[in-house]
């Protein structure tokens, strides 16, 4: 059958529309990431090789340093770990992924557009799968923009970081965000309620962060820190150790589990009621 392109819109599939709808938001989040990276890079010269700063940091309590990921603060990787990857960058990515993931199907149900979408011959599973894929691509683009800025602009402020540690940290942050976004998608797909999906996922995210960060301080938490996806992503310190295949595999499996749960849950429900 004959089709004709209309304008420049890329609207061939639910996947394309989902990205198309979020194009401005994705540009905004990417610029936010660029701004975060640029700010941190701009501040780096004041700590780099600054002995007073080193002494000050050394004088902090071990607990403080452990919780905030502060080690080797005046070196490039140590600075990035403390200022970018221990909290801020993953937090922003998680917020993006959870807001978006919770909206993917539950938003269509709450706004009522699910009716007109389901008027098309598209299976529920395909809707969820394509929306999940759009989420994954969007998160990857925003995460990548952070890595690119650091890799490109870092040397200009004498911030040198190896390819492995940098991209291992970026990938870990991105997969962590995708995992929580997929959890929010699954909860939204299972209930049709965006607020609930966001609330529960936010609690999971906070618990995961605290478990991973406190495990360095609280001895009885250490044996259970593997329960925290934050631990598998950033608790294992990719900035020092590079890619950690086992831990990444755990995260990928969890992402897959959430995506499958979303597919199954959405397939077995009354929509938009």
């Amino acid at each position: 059958m004959r089709r004709r392109e209309v304008g420049s819109a890329h609207l061939h599939s639910v996947f394309e529309r989902t990205l198309h709808e979020q194009r401005r938001a994705l540009v905004g989040w990417s610029l936010g990431m660029v701004a975060l990276a640029a700010t941190m890079l701009a501040l780096y010269p004041t700590v780099h090789g600054n002995e007073q700063f080193s002494k000050l940091i050394d004088s902090y309590p071990e607990a403080f340093k452990s919780f905030f990921g502060v080690a080797d603060y005046t070196s490039g990787p140590g600075y990035l770990r403390a200022e970018v990857f221990s909290f801020m960058a993953p937090l922003l990515l998680v917020i993006l992924a959870v807001l978006w993931g919770s909206d993917l199907t539950a938003g269509e149900e709450e706004r009522g557009t699910i009716d007109v979408l389901m008027a098309n011959p598209v299976s529920r599973r395909r809707i969820v799968a394509e929306k999940w894929a759009a989420l994954a691509v969007g998160v990857a683009v925003v995460a990548a923009s952070l890595g690119v800025v650091i890799a490109v602009a870092g040397p200009a402020v004498s911030l040198h970081v190896g390819w492995g540690p940098l991209w291992a940290s970026v990938v870990a942050s991105g997969i962590l965000a995708l995992l929580l976004g997929s959890l929010a998608l699954a909860l939204g797909a299972a209930t049709g309620r965006r607020g609930m999906a966001r609330g529960v996922t936010a609690m999971v995210a906070v618990a995961a962060y605290l478990l991973s960060s406190l495990a360095g301080l609280v001895s009885w938490l250490r044996p259970v820190r593997w329960l925290s996806p934050w631990y598998h992503a950033l608790g294992v310190d990719p900035m020092a150790t590079g890619f950690r295949p086992f831990h990444l595999a755990v995260l990928v499996l969890l992402v897959a589990a959430c995506a499958v749960a979303a597919l199954v849950a959405f397939d077995h429900r009354d929509l938009g009621t």
Partner: peptide
Amino acid sequence: YLPGELALYDRMTARELLTHFAYL
């Protein structure tokens, strides 16, 4: 199908929405 409480993708134009559905 025309839903009773019709909700559409508000930020799209009618042309975009109809194109999208034609592809689907």
